Computed example of a mutant assay.
Amino acid sequence: MLDDDPAGGEGFENGLVYELAAELGFDADDVEWVGQTFEEAIAPGTKPYDFAIQQISVTEERQEIVDFSMVYYQPDKALLALPDSPVVGATTLAELVDANWGATIGTTDLDYIENIIGADGVAVFDDQATTFQALLGGNIDATVVAFPTALFATAVQIPEADIVASLPADPNDTGHGLLFEQGNPLVDCIDQGLERIIARGVVDDLVSEYLIGDADVVEITG
């Protein structure tokens, strides 16, 4: 979202929600936003909303305790670091292994660092803001986040950091989906709406407007 204002309708996720609401016959004023942390969202149990949209990746493990919509977006992973980090200039995953890594607990970003990059001793933080503060403070050399997160982070949250590289796809991360309380009967209806707006090119248009990064970013392929 832009300006930390979900109701403003500016930003990829916000725009998607309002387009989906319109497709399902709702006015913008009908959309209500409820705050919840990432950890609360992916935990089992009752949810105080119809669905969550927080760039949440669909994984088999999470599907055991919550329900997801169809995947609406498959982002690349991004390598995020300060300009003087030892990961700057790396062109292979092997060159990243020995860096001092950090990531947020419960995320596919943490799984990626441990299982795809193969790093040991990854520092684990309670939330993304704390991970970013550790990066700024020099406690870690780098972190991995979804590319849309990296774009927002380097523009707003930690402009001192850079997107150092894009990374190979994570075979265990099938993409972002809307998250529902397990057993929520709205999933099928939401999927139908998503399918229609995806087919109309709405998601592609939102990606072009909000999620296009620097074409010169290094691409690490393996």
Rank of each mutant, 00 (worst) to 15 (best):
residue 5 D to A: 09
residue 64 E to A: 14
residue 77 K to T: 03
residue 197 I to N: 10
residue 43 A to H: 03
residue 100 N to T: 13
residue 175 G to D: 02
residue 16 L to F: 02
residue 172 N to Q: 14
residue 11 G to Q: 06
residue 186 L to T: 04
residue 126 D to W: 03
residue 197 I to F: 12
residue 36 Q to C: 01
residue 201 G to Y: 11
residue 49 Y to H: 03
residue 20 L to Y: 11
residue 167 L to E: 09
residue 73 Y to A: 02
residue 191 D to L: 07
residue 18 Y to S: 06
residue 126 D to K: 04
residue 65 I to V: 15
residue 30 D to L: 05
residue 190 I to D: 09
residue 170 D to G: 07
residue 167 L to M: 13
residue 9 G to A: 08
residue 81 A to H: 10
residue 13 E to A: 12
residue 198 I to N: 08
residue 174 T to S: 14
residue 43 A to E: 10
residue 2 L to Q: 09
residue 176 H to K: 01
residue 163 I to P: 06
residue 202 V to H: 14
residue 1 M to W: 01
residue 212 I to P: 01
residue 215 A to H: 05
residue 58 V to Q: 11
residue 66 V to Y: 04
residue 186 L to K: 13
residue 144 V to P: 01
residue 49 Y to K: 00
residue 184 N to P: 04
residue 193 G to Q: 09
residue 138 G to I: 04
residue 44 P to R: 06
residue 10 E to A: 15
residue 173 D to K: 04
residue 210 Y to T: 07
residue 89 G to C: 10
residue 140 I to F: 10
residue 156 V to T: 13
residue 117 I to D: 08
residue 116 I to Y: 02
residue 151 L to C: 03
residue 183 G to V: 07
residue 174 T to L: 06
residue 133 Q to R: 11
residue 207 V to Q: 10
residue 126 D to R: 09
residue 92 T to W: 11
residue 74 Q to C: 01
residue 56 I to D: 05
residue 122 V to N: 06
residue 204 D to Y: 01
residue 207 V to P: 04
residue 81 A to E: 11
residue 189 C to I: 05
residue 13 E to I: 00
residue 152 F to Q: 10
residue 137 G to Q: 11
residue 106 G to K: 01
residue 162 D to F: 01
residue 156 V to E: 12
residue 131 T to W: 08
residue 102 G to Y: 10
residue 124 V to K: 14
residue 40 E to S: 14
residue 29 D to M: 07
residue 59 T to K: 12
residue 155 A to L: 06
residue 101 W to G: 07
residue 156 V to L: 02
residue 190 I to Y: 09
residue 133 Q to Y: 02
residue 7 A to D: 07
residue 221 T to Q: 15
residue 127 D to F: 12
residue 98 D to I: 09
residue 71 V to W: 02
residue 99 A to S: 12
residue 3 D to A: 13
residue 179 L to K: 10
residue 85 S to K: 05
residue 182 Q to L: 03
residue 13 E to W: 01
residue 209 E to C: 06
residue 14 N to D: 12
residue 122 V to M: 07
residue 92 T to F: 13
residue 176 H to G: 00
residue 98 D to H: 14
residue 19 E to F: 01
residue 28 A to Y: 08
residue 180 F to L: 10
residue 156 V to H: 10
residue 206 L to V: 04
residue 217 V to K: 08
residue 20 L to P: 13
residue 110 L to S: 05
residue 199 A to Q: 14
residue 109 D to W: 05
residue 196 R to T: 15
residue 85 S to M: 06
residue 108 T to M: 14
residue 85 S to P: 05
residue 166 S to E: 11
residue 195 E to K: 14
residue 218 V to E: 15
residue 148 P to T: 06
residue 10 E to M: 13
residue 44 P to H: 03
residue 205 D to I: 07
residue 126 D to S: 13
residue 43 A to F: 08
residue 61 E to F: 04
residue 172 N to M: 11
residue 183 G to L: 03
residue 213 G to D: 03
residue 180 F to H: 02
residue 8 G to R: 04
residue 117 I to F: 07
residue 40 E to T: 13
residue 201 G to H: 09
residue 33 W to Y: 07
residue 205 D to H: 12
residue 146 A to E: 11
residue 199 A to G: 09
residue 152 F to Y: 12
residue 170 D to Q: 04
residue 35 G to I: 00
